[in-house]
């Protein structure tokens, strides 16, 4: 079975800043800035979709081969998890 992306933490609030998104996590009191690409990854972090599906969805949206963005998507998911704004699905 393919790896599933984490889900958005319930302690996070989001605010649009132009093309960017600021996430505020009340659990840490910190804010995390997402550029437009990271914002797209964040939007798909539902705790149900597989990582491969996220990569395919974004590749279709950007009109590029999945392998071109796979590393970036995985890295972004790791960074979001490290920041605590997405959490593992139970």
């Amino acid at each position: 079975m393919s790896e599933v992306v984490g889900r958005q933490s319930e302690t996070v609030r989001e605010m649009a800043l132009g093309d960017e998104l600021s996430l505020f996590d009340s659990a840490t009191g910190r804010a995390v800035a997402l550029n437009s690409t990271a914002r797209d990854v964040w939007a798909l972090a539902d705790g149900q979709t597989s990582v491969v599906e996220v990569i395919d969805t974004l590749a279709r949206a950007y009109g590029v081969p999945p392998e071109d963005i796979a590393d970036d998507v995985r890295r972004t998911l790791d960074l979001l998890a490290e920041a605590g704004v997405i959490v593992p699905t139970a």
Binding site: R13, M15, L17, E20, L21, F24, G29, R30, V32, A33
Partner: peptide, 30 residues
């Protein structure tokens, strides 16, 4: 620079938020 990074930097350097401060971190963020 990135507006979002700017906001994160401002929030990370707040002096009077949290316990005993007049602002909660979330109010400061907003």
């Amino acid at each position: 620079g990135s507006t979002g990074e700017g906001l994160s930097a401002l929030l990370a350097n707040c002096l009077n938020t949290g316990l005993g401060g007049p602002w909660t971190p979330e109010e400061a963020w907003a």
